[in-house]
Amino acid sequence: MTILEFVVAALALVILIYTVIIYNGLIRLKNNVARAFANIEVLLKQRHTELPLLVDVCKGYMVHEQHVLLAITEARSRVHSAQEKHDVRGLGQAETLMRTSLSQLFARCEAYPDLKANENFLALQERISQLEDAIADRREIFNESVRLNNTRIQQVPDVVLARSFGFGELAYLKFETVALLPVKINLKS
């Protein structure tokens, strides 16, 4: 092996290692997004299980608000369907609908003192609102992971590998956040 061949081989090895680092980085970013989405899915599944319980409790009291309960059932099914298809845009739209419907439900509950006194209802309301907050938090991490991925695949030298291996831009999860529980103001402090 001549010196020139040795130098070329050494440089090729360095470039190869650098390429592997870039490729692994792109895979890591993609996996971060998948992991962030899976973390949202866990919460969506928990909420999917709890919502029928909430609707059942409300049904007995809110006889004249069936359309609100129906909207929640409809939103639940849309969220589930989008989640199954891994359709991030569709999930965002369904989630906005869900939050609006839940917000309407909790607002109308104010007119039903018996329902508001029901312990089951209070526990479910608290639980679902905690889940909504956690979903909103995890959406931030998901969107941050997407932003990091989308930025990285546009940068040099990553763009070369990203295009060659088909790493594409990923969609952000967008939905409106609505406060579900009334804000408690502590007048004592």
Partner: peptide, 21 residues
Amino acid sequence: IRHGRIMQDTPTSKIRSASQG
């Protein structure tokens, strides 16, 4: 290079909702 990229590529989590890992 590797550690720098991992730092740049990892999103900041909130403690209350951070996932295990």
